[in-house]
Structures are given as structure tokens and as C-alpha cells.
């Protein structure tokens, strides 16, 4: 942990939360994010229990193995993020840069794989509104090999994973900025708030994904 005294102008304050503003701020903001995903996941639970016949089995439509690999990627990026933070805590600028670059690349790769997944699914005929008319999946459904309609399944799938993907993308954009600052040597052993703050956000996004992967792809 950095020395708080180095991060503040020496104005005297009543003892607050004993963490610097940016860190407290991101924790508070993540509280809001928790509620946002609660709304999406809550809606998913309600429509899924309300209309179970609209759900296909795991693996019937979604490509679980590819997403499993993608999940592994995202977990790796959390690890590199931790490494980046640990490096700058030791004051190691070079390693910070290395691990930040790695995190950015892996994060971007996650978004890339998700884009590939979406493209494939749309191509096969799985849309936010359900099956595309005349598509491969619609034919399977007509033959009774898939549920007759997957409308709310599609709605939940694309909304939840899409908003998660949006959060990852935002995270990557912010991390590019942090990485750029890292290359300019703006972070020091004493003051590296930016790295810690984006790290907290990144771990949160990772955690949300593990929940989403479980409930959307595995059950």
C-alpha cells in the first residue's frame, strides 16, 4: 500500500475512510454497478423461471468450449493486472509496462472472441429476438430438435453478455490510457492510484463474467 501522505496535499482532514478518494470512489461506483447487473440478472431469473420452455440446453446453441477458453483468458488478464499492480508497488516500471500491455492485449482478445461468437451466432440465426426466419437454427427448431422459440433466451443472452462486453471494452480503453501513462513513467512506488483503481474495476468485471458464464452458459 502506498503512503497516504504522499498522495494528498497536506490539508488536515477529519479521519475518513482511511483510503484515498479515487479508491473510495471506485468502490462506491462499483456498488452502483452491482445494482445494474442485479437488474439484468434479476430480469433473467424472472423470465427464465417464468418461461423455462424458451431456453435451449447449454451447448445446443451457444459454443461453450470457445467461451470457456475466453473465460480463461479473462481470468488470466486479472492475474496480469495483479502482477502489474504488484510490480509498481515494488517500483518496477518496466514490469508494470509489460503487465499492463499484457492485460490490455488479453482484454482486447476477450472482446474479439466475443465479437466472433456474436457473429457466428447471428450467422446461425440466433438473434436478440429469437431465431432468424429461415436460418439453420430455425430449421432445427421446426424439426423439434430445439425449443420452438428462444426469444427471451436471446434477449437475456445478448443483453447480459453485451453489457458485460461493453464494460470490458470501457475497461480496455481506460487501461490503454493507464498503460500510456505507465510508459511515460507517471506511476511511482509511492503513488500509483490509477493502476490500483483500474485494477479494482477490472477484477469486478472479471467477477461479473464468472457469474454470467455460469448462469448463461452452464446452467
Amino acid at each position: 500500500m502506498a503512503h497516504p501522505a504522499m498522495m494528498h496535499p497536506p490539508a488536515r482532514r477529519e479521519i475518513g475512510a482511511d483510503v484515498y478518494n479515487e479508491k473510495l470512489g471506485i468502490w462506491i461506483f462499483l456498488g452502483s454497478e452491482v445494482m445494474f447487473f442485479t437488474a439484468l440478472i434479476g430480469a433473467y431469473i424472472i423470465v427464465r423461471f417464468g418461461s423455462p420452455e424458451f431456453w435451449a440446453l447449454p451447448n445446443q446453441i451457444l459454443n461453450v468450449p470457445v467461451t470457456a477458453i475466453n473465460t480463461f483468458l479473462l481470468i488470466c488478464s486479472s492475474v496480469t493486472m495483479v502482477k502489474a499492480f504488484a510490480s509498481i508497488q515494488d517500483g518496477d516500471q518496466k514490469k508494470l509496462q509489460l503487465y499492463m500491455v499484457a492485460t490490455v492485449i488479453i482484454g482486447a482478445a476477450f472482446v474479439g472472441v466475443q465479437a466472433y461468437e456474436y457473429t457466428t451466432l447471428v450467422h446461425e440465426g440466433f438473434l436478440p429476438s429469437g431465431y432468424a426466419a429461415g436460418s439453420h437454427l430455425a430449421e432445427l427448431a421446426a424439426r423439434g430438435e430445439l425449443p420452438a422459440s428462444v426469444s427471451v433466451y436471446g434477449s437475456s443472452f445478448y443483453t447480459m453478455t453485451g453489457f458485460h462486453g461493453f464494460h470490458v471494452s470501457m475497461g480496455v480503453v481506460c487501461m490503454v490510457f493507464v498503460t500510456w501513462k505507465a510508459f511515460k513513467g507517471k506511476y511511482t512506488k509511492e503513488d500509483h492510484r490509477g493502476v490500483e483503481v483500474i485494477g479494482l474495476y477490472w477484477h469486478f468485471v472479471d467477477l461479473v463474467w464468472i457469474i454470467l458464464f455460469t448462469i448463461v452458459y452452464l446452467v
Binding site: 417464468g50 429476438s129 422459440s149
Partner: peptide, 16 residues
């Protein structure tokens, strides 16, 4: 984009 969260005719729930 044609999702059906609140559309009762296609598995959605207006009460939600």
C-alpha cells in the same frame, strides 16, 4: 432490437 423482456406473447413478463 426486438428483444422480448416485457412482451407476454413471447415469453416476457410485463409485470417485471
Amino acid at each position: 432490437i426486438g428483444t422480448h423482456f416485457f412482451d407476454p406473447t413471447d415469453g416476457g413478463q410485463p409485470l417485471m
